[in-house]
Design a protein around this nucleic acid. Structure first.
Lengths: 192, 192
DNA sequence: TACTTCTCCCTAAAGGCTTTAGGCAAAGGG
DNA sequence: CCCTTTGCCTAAAGCCTTTAGGGAGAAGTA
């Protein structure tokens, strides 16, 4: 039998491409094997199981996304940085919808800690450094910003905006304007 | 054979409960049949197929969520309304995580149009009526608000906030303060 | 070069989920 | 009371995952 030259990296890449084409939920060892011209059982020498494949695709996506975000952020601050980070996420989700979904795959704590996840958190905090938020408000702002960006991108990808009127590019720009404005005018805690 | 008294409603309810217990991605006709004390093939008299079951669970969740939101919004406006709507979503997602996930299940356009989805959109717009947004900015605000709320709730549910410091209740309240403030001070389009 | 060892991919098989086809018996109308 | 309808069943085929065990290249050693 001619050797196919499999490796975890090759399989993960094939799985990630499959995710982008067919959706992350359709990523299957069988299909990956088929695409690599190999029998399913052969994959088990390189991957623990199906969950392992999905985890590795998630790690790949987080890494790719963090690399792009880091490039986009270099040398920018304030609204420019906000826009750069946001556009990076949105563009990635559009070009690589399956990978983007994979990036949300739930990882166990140890794996998550070793992933590029923390890099993403640091980059978000770096963007916020361009705004001077009150002491102790950073975590709330990180979460709001993360939520708004992820929420927008995932609703858009999920077709949630398909049946309402204005094109999503316009409302995306307004969303970034609004977030920028919010960060520049972060409200004091409301004690009513 | 004693009749089990199946019906689409019964099966959908069983499926929704299963989703809440095991996660929407583990909802399976086999498991639903098992829980109803019935063989799998029997389900096909009541449901078209597995996708049909998931669709119906999604419709149920959207409906339940819209009913609760409508109750919570009754008689409120401004920040009270915003908080009521937001808390409804968050509480529902915490008590019924599988149903909440199901509510994001992608529906075909015709089904979506007939679902409670449009009610949700109308309620969000109703909340915004309590703020006077500039002409033509409503859709952007609807999307930002929907994105922020869904994003927060889904990141929280997905464990995205598990490994950072402050408790999520506090940052949730700050998030709502921030969104309220943003809606009260919606920025003019930025022509820089 | 010839032999050994290891690695890689294969076949085989068991178990789970989905879906369709066809049967039997309980419910319910005439 | 019969008979039609309906509801749940058995059977079977197809696809996916996972484990066990085998054969043939590739690589190291003499």
């Amino acid at each position: 039998m001619a050797r196919a030259g499999l490796s975890p990296e090759l399989l993960v890449r094939a799985g990630a491409d499959l995710a982008d084409e067919a959706g992350f939920e359709h990523v299957t060892l069988s299909e990956v094997a088929r695409r690599c011209g190999v029998k399913v059982a052969s994959l088990y020498s390189h991957l623990k199981n199906s969950h392992d494949l999905k985890t590795r695709i998630a790690l790949l996506a987080l890494e790719e996304l963090a690399d792009r975000a880091a490039d986009a952020l270099a040398g920018r601050s304030g609204k420019e940085a906000l826009t750069a980070l946001a556009d990076t996420y949105r563009d990635y989700a559009r070009v690589h919808p399956g990978r983007y979904t994979a990036a949300r795959f739930r990882l166990d704590p140890a794996t998550a800690a070793d992933s590029a996840g923390p890099r993403h958190a640091r980059m978000t905090r770096a963007v916020l450094r361009g705004y001077d938020l009150p002491e102790g408000e950073e975590t709330a702002a990180v979460r709001l910003l993360g939520a708004a960006l992820h929420g927008y991108v995932s609703l858009e990808a999920g077709g949630g905006f398909d049946h309402s009127a204005p094109d999503t590019q316009a409302t995306w720009e307004r969303t970034l304007d609004a977030l920028d404005s919010l960060l520049r005018n972060w409200p004091a805690p409301d004690h009513t």
